[in-house]
Amino acid sequence: MEVATVKIGEIVTADSAAFSFQCHALGQPPPLGSLVLTGEADALIYGIVHSASTLPIDRGRQVQALGPEFQDEAALYQQHPELDQLLRTEVQALIAGYGNGSALRYSLPPRPARIHGFVLLASASQVQQFTRDLSFVATLVGADVPHRDHALAACLRLAAAAHDKPRDFLVGAGREAARLLAADAPRLHLLLRQIAP
Protein backbone atom coordinates (compact mmCIF):
# COMPACT_ATOMS: atom_id res chain seq x y z
CA MET A 1 0.00 0.00 0.00
CA GLU A 2 1.21 3.48 -0.87
CA VAL A 3 1.73 5.37 2.37
CA ALA A 4 1.79 9.06 3.19
CA THR A 5 5.23 10.61 3.19
CA VAL A 6 4.68 14.33 2.85
CA LYS A 7 4.86 16.22 6.14
CA ILE A 8 2.30 19.01 6.16
CA GLY A 9 2.54 20.23 9.73
CA GLU A 10 3.34 19.78 13.38
CA ILE A 11 0.99 19.14 16.29
CA VAL A 12 0.53 22.08 18.65
CA THR A 13 -2.41 20.95 20.79
CA ALA A 14 -3.65 17.44 21.49
CA ASP A 15 -6.22 15.78 23.66
CA SER A 16 -7.91 12.38 23.66
CA ALA A 17 -10.41 13.20 20.93
CA ALA A 18 -8.76 15.84 18.75
CA PHE A 19 -5.56 17.56 17.78
CA SER A 20 -4.54 20.70 16.00
CA PHE A 21 -1.44 21.33 13.97
CA GLN A 22 0.46 24.23 12.49
CA CYS A 23 0.93 23.94 8.75
CA HIS A 24 4.45 24.14 7.38
CA ALA A 25 3.10 26.18 4.44
CA LEU A 26 1.37 29.40 5.43
CA GLY A 27 -2.16 29.65 4.08
CA GLN A 28 -2.10 26.15 2.60
CA PRO A 29 -3.97 23.86 4.95
CA PRO A 30 -5.13 20.49 3.64
CA PRO A 31 -8.65 20.73 2.20
CA LEU A 32 -11.60 20.57 4.60
CA GLY A 33 -12.49 16.92 5.28
CA SER A 34 -8.99 15.59 4.51
CA LEU A 35 -7.75 12.49 6.28
CA VAL A 36 -4.47 13.19 8.10
CA LEU A 37 -2.14 10.95 10.06
CA THR A 38 0.21 11.32 12.97
CA GLY A 39 2.28 9.00 15.14
CA GLU A 40 4.57 6.04 14.53
CA ALA A 41 3.85 3.46 11.83
CA ASP A 42 2.68 0.89 14.37
CA ALA A 43 0.51 3.39 16.25
CA LEU A 44 -1.02 5.77 13.76
CA ILE A 45 -3.72 8.22 14.75
CA TYR A 46 -6.20 9.18 12.01
CA GLY A 47 -7.75 12.62 12.04
CA ILE A 48 -10.32 14.36 9.88
CA VAL A 49 -9.77 18.06 9.19
CA HIS A 50 -12.83 20.03 10.26
CA SER A 51 -11.51 23.56 10.54
CA ALA A 52 -8.50 25.71 9.59
CA SER A 53 -7.51 29.30 10.22
CA THR A 54 -4.62 31.67 9.53
CA LEU A 55 -3.81 34.07 12.36
CA PRO A 56 -0.96 36.04 13.95
CA ILE A 57 1.63 33.90 15.73
CA ASP A 58 1.39 36.34 18.63
CA ARG A 59 -2.23 36.16 19.73
CA GLY A 60 -1.96 39.63 21.21
CA ARG A 61 -1.55 41.17 17.76
CA GLN A 62 -4.22 42.05 15.26
CA VAL A 63 -3.93 41.78 11.51
CA GLN A 64 -4.58 45.14 9.86
CA ALA A 65 -5.25 45.87 6.22
CA LEU A 66 -2.06 47.06 4.54
CA GLY A 67 -3.55 49.82 2.49
CA PRO A 68 -5.10 50.31 -0.87
CA GLU A 69 -1.89 51.16 -2.73
CA PHE A 70 -1.34 47.60 -3.91
CA GLN A 71 -2.61 46.59 -7.32
CA ASP A 72 -2.87 42.90 -6.53
CA GLU A 73 -2.34 40.49 -3.67
CA ALA A 74 0.92 39.15 -5.10
CA ALA A 75 2.40 42.68 -4.95
CA LEU A 76 1.28 43.02 -1.34
CA TYR A 77 3.00 39.80 -0.30
CA GLN A 78 6.04 40.77 -2.37
CA GLN A 79 6.38 44.02 -0.42
CA HIS A 80 5.75 42.37 2.95
CA PRO A 81 7.85 39.22 3.01
CA GLU A 82 7.85 39.40 6.82
CA LEU A 83 4.23 38.18 6.89
CA ASP A 84 5.47 34.61 6.53
CA GLN A 85 7.26 35.05 9.86
CA LEU A 86 4.34 36.61 11.69
CA LEU A 87 1.36 34.50 10.67
CA ARG A 88 0.61 30.85 10.98
CA THR A 89 -2.02 28.50 9.63
CA GLU A 90 -3.53 26.20 12.18
CA VAL A 91 -5.70 23.20 11.40
CA GLN A 92 -8.13 21.35 13.69
CA ALA A 93 -8.70 17.64 13.28
CA LEU A 94 -11.02 15.21 15.04
CA ILE A 95 -9.62 11.80 15.83
CA ALA A 96 -11.57 9.27 13.79
CA GLY A 97 -9.59 6.16 14.65
CA TYR A 98 -6.19 4.63 15.16
CA GLY A 99 -4.26 1.53 14.26
CA ASN A 100 -1.23 0.10 12.55
CA GLY A 101 -2.48 -0.11 8.99
CA SER A 102 -3.77 -3.67 9.05
CA ALA A 103 -5.85 -3.43 12.21
CA LEU A 104 -7.89 -0.25 12.29
CA ARG A 105 -10.00 0.78 15.23
CA TYR A 106 -12.70 3.40 14.86
CA SER A 107 -12.48 4.65 18.41
CA LEU A 108 -10.25 6.91 20.47
CA PRO A 109 -6.58 5.96 20.82
CA PRO A 110 -5.18 5.05 24.24
CA ARG A 111 -3.12 8.25 24.34
CA PRO A 112 -3.42 11.66 22.70
CA ALA A 113 -1.19 12.53 19.78
CA ARG A 114 2.28 13.73 20.65
CA ILE A 115 2.93 17.49 20.75
CA HIS A 116 5.30 18.49 17.93
CA GLY A 117 4.48 15.18 16.23
CA PHE A 118 4.54 15.47 12.46
CA VAL A 119 1.28 15.36 10.53
CA LEU A 120 1.03 13.73 7.11
CA LEU A 121 -1.67 13.83 4.50
CA ALA A 122 -3.08 10.32 3.97
CA SER A 123 -2.39 8.76 0.57
CA ALA A 124 -5.27 7.71 -1.69
CA SER A 125 -4.86 4.06 -0.72
CA GLN A 126 -4.79 4.94 2.97
CA VAL A 127 -7.99 6.95 2.52
CA GLN A 128 -9.59 4.04 0.70
CA GLN A 129 -8.57 1.59 3.39
CA PHE A 130 -9.72 3.78 6.27
CA THR A 131 -13.07 4.74 4.77
CA ARG A 132 -13.98 1.21 3.65
CA ASP A 133 -15.60 0.91 7.07
CA LEU A 134 -18.09 3.75 7.55
CA SER A 135 -17.83 3.88 11.35
CA PHE A 136 -16.02 7.22 11.09
CA VAL A 137 -19.24 8.84 9.87
CA ALA A 138 -20.65 8.53 13.40
CA THR A 139 -17.62 10.37 14.80
CA LEU A 140 -18.33 13.47 12.74
CA VAL A 141 -22.10 13.31 13.06
CA GLY A 142 -21.73 13.22 16.84
CA ALA A 143 -18.89 15.70 17.09
CA ASP A 144 -19.29 18.84 19.14
CA VAL A 145 -17.71 21.19 16.60
CA PRO A 146 -19.15 23.84 14.30
CA HIS A 147 -19.63 22.92 10.65
CA ARG A 148 -19.39 19.20 11.45
CA ASP A 149 -21.79 18.26 8.61
CA HIS A 150 -19.87 20.37 6.09
CA ALA A 151 -16.65 18.67 7.18
CA LEU A 152 -18.33 15.27 6.90
CA ALA A 153 -19.69 16.02 3.44
CA ALA A 154 -16.26 17.24 2.29
CA CYS A 155 -14.64 14.16 3.77
CA LEU A 156 -17.05 11.84 1.99
CA ARG A 157 -16.57 13.56 -1.37
CA LEU A 158 -12.77 13.37 -1.04
CA ALA A 159 -12.97 9.73 0.07
CA ALA A 160 -15.27 8.80 -2.79
CA ALA A 161 -12.57 9.78 -5.26
CA ALA A 162 -10.24 7.23 -3.66
CA HIS A 163 -12.69 4.35 -4.15
CA ASP A 164 -13.08 2.32 -7.34
CA LYS A 165 -16.82 2.98 -7.40
CA PRO A 166 -17.29 6.49 -5.99
CA ARG A 167 -21.05 6.44 -6.48
CA ASP A 168 -21.48 3.18 -4.57
CA PHE A 169 -19.32 4.60 -1.79
CA LEU A 170 -21.44 7.74 -1.51
CA VAL A 171 -24.68 5.79 -1.53
CA GLY A 172 -23.37 3.59 1.27
CA ALA A 173 -22.21 6.61 3.23
CA GLY A 174 -25.59 8.27 2.68
CA ARG A 175 -27.32 5.22 4.12
CA GLU A 176 -25.05 5.30 7.16
CA ALA A 177 -25.85 8.97 7.66
CA ALA A 178 -29.59 8.29 7.28
CA ARG A 179 -29.37 5.62 9.97
CA LEU A 180 -27.53 7.98 12.35
CA LEU A 181 -29.71 11.01 11.64
CA ALA A 182 -33.07 9.22 11.46
CA ALA A 183 -34.44 11.55 14.10
CA ASP A 184 -33.23 14.77 12.43
CA ALA A 185 -34.65 14.90 8.92
CA PRO A 186 -33.73 18.53 8.09
CA ARG A 187 -30.09 17.95 9.02
CA LEU A 188 -29.96 14.69 7.05
CA HIS A 189 -31.53 16.39 4.06
CA LEU A 190 -28.88 19.11 4.02
CA LEU A 191 -26.09 16.59 4.38
CA LEU A 192 -27.41 14.38 1.56
CA ARG A 193 -27.74 17.36 -0.73
CA GLN A 194 -24.07 18.14 -0.13
CA ILE A 195 -22.86 14.66 -1.02
CA ALA A 196 -25.28 13.88 -3.84
CA PRO A 197 -23.20 12.44 -6.68
Binding site: Y77, Q78, Q79, P81, E82, L83, D84, Q85
Partner: peptide, 13 residues
Amino acid sequence: MQVRYGRQPAATS
Protein backbone atom coordinates in the same frame (compact mmCIF):
# COMPACT_ATOMS: atom_id res chain seq x y z
CA MET B 1 14.30 40.99 11.80
CA GLN B 2 15.88 40.93 8.37
CA VAL B 3 13.78 41.52 5.29
CA ARG B 4 14.85 41.38 1.68
CA TYR B 5 12.75 43.31 -0.82
CA GLY B 6 12.70 43.07 -4.57
CA ARG B 7 12.84 40.11 -6.90
CA GLN B 8 13.56 37.53 -4.22
CA PRO B 9 11.53 38.68 -1.23
CA ALA B 10 12.36 36.87 1.99
CA ALA B 11 12.33 37.48 5.72
CA THR B 12 14.09 35.97 8.71
CA SER B 13 13.66 36.74 12.37
